[in-house]
């Protein structure tokens, strides 16, 4: 019986297995190319196993562009964005979930609009704003437009609303209202949502390109994605093993963390739409 059940899933495994293979192929090819010697690349049939293995590409990438600096900048920018976001969305989600006030639906609508107006639709005026604030070519410039998050507010509001009103009533009677209730009760109870939002925010800003491209122009503040873009232009026509090593390095931090915590990541991203 068990065997029959397993066999019934065989076609599913075949379909999923082959599509998974197709999906994984590009990344394996990236790693393979990044470990080859330049001469090994030009073969009439793809050579999957790099032999002899050449780790030197990675070292050379670091010699030619300050990828270490890019990495530090990226970490600073994404954690900076997230830290401020957590404060702004927690405060906003709290009043949207637990209070009534004049203009509530209108204001909530305004928060939601932000989800529909991506930075891609506002980068020209935002660039002028930052120029007027004299903040161009700083790390803060890369963070500022993302400090408020309509999406995060929305997710967290849903989580806060799941928490019974009785809890707040009891807390108020005991003299633990407002910010203290928010900090000591709501925030710990909404932790799964905060973690999910945190991961989504980190991943999406780690991958930001257009905005950092526009507001930075020197390597000392650039992030990994911009660094990669510049490296590609600077080395254009250069050998593919170097370009792929740089590309692999830019994807590596997130990929490693993703593979280690894949369950948490996948749950978080699943969760992101569930509440939408």
């Amino acid at each position: 019986m068990a065997l029959r059940k397993r066999l019934a899933h065989l076609p599913t495994h075949l379909v999923l297995g082959s599509i998974s293979l197709v999906a994984v192929t590009p990344y394996l090819w990236l790693l393979s190319t990044s470990l080859k010697f330049p001469k090994e690349v030009f073969t009439p049939t793809p050579r999957w196993i790099p032999w002899p293995v050449n780790f030197g590409n990675y070292a050379e990438v670091f010699d030619r562009a300050p990828f270490g600096v890019f990495l530090v900048n990226t970490v600073l920018v994404v954690t900076g964005i997230l830290a401020v976001q957590l404060v702004t969305i927690t405060l906003a989600a709290y009043v949207f979930a637990r209070r009534t006030f004049r203009g509530q639906s209108l204001l909530f609508g305004l928060f939601l609009i932000q989800m529909m107006i991506p930075i891609h639709a506002t980068f020209v005026p935002n660039f002028l704003t930052l120029r007027n604030l004299d903040l161009l070519n700083t790390r803060v410039a890369m963070m500022l437009p993302f400090f408020a998050s309509g999406y995060g507010t929305f997710l967290l509001r849903q989580a806060f609303r799941q928490i019974p009103q009785d809890l707040e009533d009891a807390a108020v009677i005991d003299g633990c209202g407002g910010l203290r209730f928010l900090w000591h009760v709501l925030v710990p109870l909404a932790r799964p949502t905060l973690v999910a939002f945190g991961l989504i925010s980190l991943v999406s800003h780690w991958n930001d390109y257009l905005w950092p491209l526009i507001v930075t122009d020197t390597p000392d503040v650039r992030t990994l994605t911009i660094g990669l873009g510049m490296f590609v232009q600077q080395e254009s026509g250069a050998d593919w093993t170097l370009l792929m090593a740089a590309t692999a390095f830019v994807t590596a931090p997130l990929m490693v963390i993703f593979l280690i915590f894949q369950r948490k990541f996948i749950e978080s991203f699943m969760f992101s739409g569930l509440k939408g």
Partner: peptide, 13 residues
Amino acid sequence: VALFYPTMIPMVA
């Protein structure tokens, strides 16, 4: 994991 990982890669990369 195999089907989802492309989402984690920066679009530029």
